[in-house]
Design a protein around this nucleic acid. Structure first.
Lengths: 211, 211
DNA sequence: GTAGTCATGTAAGAGGTTACATGATTAG
DNA sequence: CTAATCATGTAACCTCTTACATGACTAC
């Protein structure tokens, strides 16, 4: 139940509306977790009902309202419990690794294109995550600044370094995936050059996709 | 729908019963995909109904029967289609990375223990995967041997290297995770040495920023 | 006989995706 | 006025996990 804890964790920086939480979690890669609004709103309702959150209803314009959620004592306790406990590991299940294992089923062009797409994907993610680490270092992330404002100074370094460390993991992962796919392209080159045979294929596997 | 394609892929090596497939997929890390029998049996039924598989009913002892599934022409076509297509990437969602981002919520001991558990977990996986790569190289994997038997010799190298490549990816991943967790332990050492004592860390918080 | 393996299911529920839906507010 | 943004939901569907269930066969 990580969505619940991700929501609780974000709300310890400052109270906010479901919409604001949606903006943080929906469709972005900025966080360690993503979720669409169709998942967030019901979860907030459940958490409210469960006493993990409190909601303040405030007017918005003349006819509309919004709810500002804040974490309750029970919510903080639950978050703490989650932080202390070691979570289980389930088996890796990566569709791209699976497909790589059965490369022989695809045409060489398709196999190459998939590895290039892998590289493009992780290069993009890499750029995003590197940028975030810079933003963390320069304290350019509003929510982080807010969190530092609401926490004692002797925790600043740990709070910042923890975020940095987590995103560094994503960066390491992206680099690893790029290297791995590169090895796959080299492998295809080697096999198709040596096989030389009747393939309608040729072409070297220069890694495509810049950025 | 990767389970379906993993099943189809395995069945291109040789026809087998649901139970045999369960043995390959259930609880083991041997493959790129894992699934419990409660997922496999219904999926086989759906695939049979959908014409992707054929089933031969053979007697087992005096009163029992079993079904031996084999991949059909339509199944091969579907597998080929899957192999050719580039599959989409969804966002990473790793609970352990999330928790790392909010390390300040846990006691230093709990944080350290979680990173150590991370290292233990991936070391174990690393050992398993390294062993599998050895077994691939030495042709000690029955299903791979069977696959080679039923495929033309000019595909041997690609078939073997594809499997090797995929597991190499898991090995790279495991090494990366071990290194990453090591950096986390070093970070905790540094912060708690400089911070001074063994006092508990923050009581609350979370955070991070959006784009 | 009995334990372990072979063999095959169903069901409840959690978590996630995609689509369907609505309406107010604000900036131009 | 109109588009973008703020704000909040529901529903159908798929995948995966966990638990409940059953029974025959084989080696000891």
């Amino acid at each position: 139940m990580s969505l619940r804890h991700a929501l609780l964790a974000v709300l310890t920086a400052e109270p906010m509306t479901g919409y604001q939480l949606v903006k943080y979690f929906d469709g972005t890669v900025v966080f360690m977790w993503s979720a669409p609004h169709s998942q967030i709103y019901p979860e907030l309702q459940r958490m409210l009902k469960g006493g993990l959150l409190e909601a303040e209803v405030v007017p918005r314009g003349r006819h509309a309202e919004k709810r500002i959620y804040s974490i309750s004592g029970a919510g903080r306790a639950e978050l703490r419990r989650w932080a202390e406990e070691t979570s289980p590991y389930q088996s890796e299940r990566d569709p791209h690794r699976l497909k790589a294992a059965y490369m022989e089923l695809a045409s060489p062009e398709a196999a190459r294109e998939q590895l290039n797409a892998h590289i493009r994907h992780y290069r993009e993610r890499l750029g995003i995550w590197e940028r975030i680490v810079e933003d963390i270092d320069d304290r350019r992330i509003p929510l982080l600044r807010q969190r530092l404002r609401t926490h004692p100074a002797d925790q600043y370094e740990l709070i910042v370094e923890a975020k940095r460390f987590a995103f560094q993991g994503e960066i390491d992962r992206a680099r690893m995936e790029i290297d791995w796919a590169g090895k796959g392209l080299a492998l295809l080159d080697r096999l198709h050059r040596s096989a030389g045979a009747s393939g309608p294929v040729a072409a070297s596997s220069a890694v495509e996709g810049g950025a």
